[in-house]
Design a binder for these strands. Sequence first.
DNA 1: CCCAGAATTAATAATTTTTACCAAAACAAC
DNA 2: GTTGTTTTGGTAAAAATTATTAATTCTGGG
Lengths: 149, 149
Amino acid sequence: MNSDDFKNDLDHFEQTCKNAGLKVTQQRMEIYRALLESSDHPSAETLYRRLRDRMPTLSLDTVYRTLATFEKHRLVHRLETKESQARFEALNVRHHHFLCDRCGSVFDFTWPAFDTVALPPTLGRIGTIERKNVVLHGRCTACLAAEDR
Amino acid sequence: MNSDDFKNDLDHFEQTCKNAGLKVTQQRMEIYRALLESSDHPSAETLYRRLRDRMPTLSLDTVYRTLATFEKHRLVHRLETKESQARFEALNVRHHHFLCDRCGSVFDFTWPAFDTVALPPTLGRIGTIERKNVVLHGRCTACLAAEDR
DNA sequence: CCCAGAATTAATAATTTTTACCAAAACAAC
DNA sequence: GTTGTTTTGGTAAAAATTATTAATTCTGGG
């Protein structure tokens, strides 16, 4: 992500907060920024540890509470994983997920061809679709390399 | 699922247990059967409640332990959801999931057209793929009907 | 610049989910 | 039958998440 995008995201964040009547506090800013800067879809705990350097007084409670607030206002997205700890990502470009079954890492990717495939007709009876996501499972390159030793 | 398929699944279950050196106990049988009979991807707690009628002495501990054992031997599959409680399904035909964002229900569907789409080339750098799954989000018909009132 | 209201903090605790422990009993498989 | 695995019951612990309360801090709007 280049610095312009970054600035835009932070602007969008401020705007969304204001629209929703949310105050733009230091903590909310930093938590959102940390999510933008992270590509590893951190959990609340991870974010907390990551931010304590910059913000020694930050409380874990605030991280959980803030993430829940963000989620409610669609600023962040809670990932679906099998792990016990929930993972989050800042909500920007549409993408899909690759999950490494060994180390649990999550990688993003885009797949334009997928978006054009017609959905199976049976879905009409199931419900209305608002989001389509692909989840791939496998081994990430790092784990593959580690296993070859 | 017709009763032949069902029998086949139970046979496959017994065979897999034996291959893995797992004893075919009453509890394991019933837990697996309950999963085969369920289309709602129940959690450990739900399975426990569901089975207590037939098996009053079953313990929750056993359900968790057994599901973990099954998962290790690839007899069941732990679903990825945002919910706190993990959900399980018996592992048979390949399918995708529709999640209702309102009531949390999970519906299965197949999508042959999806399976033929070429993956984006960028994935080569990420890792090797073992499973591809689509997760759709939306409102199930029941929730849509309820909202129209 | 000030004020009201919102948000955070600290410290603790409760809840929920999941897993673990033990000794005793049950039971599947050979 | 014997053996070794598994379940049970009861309890407990760990991990993840949410809540409480009062005091303090800070944002946003005037």
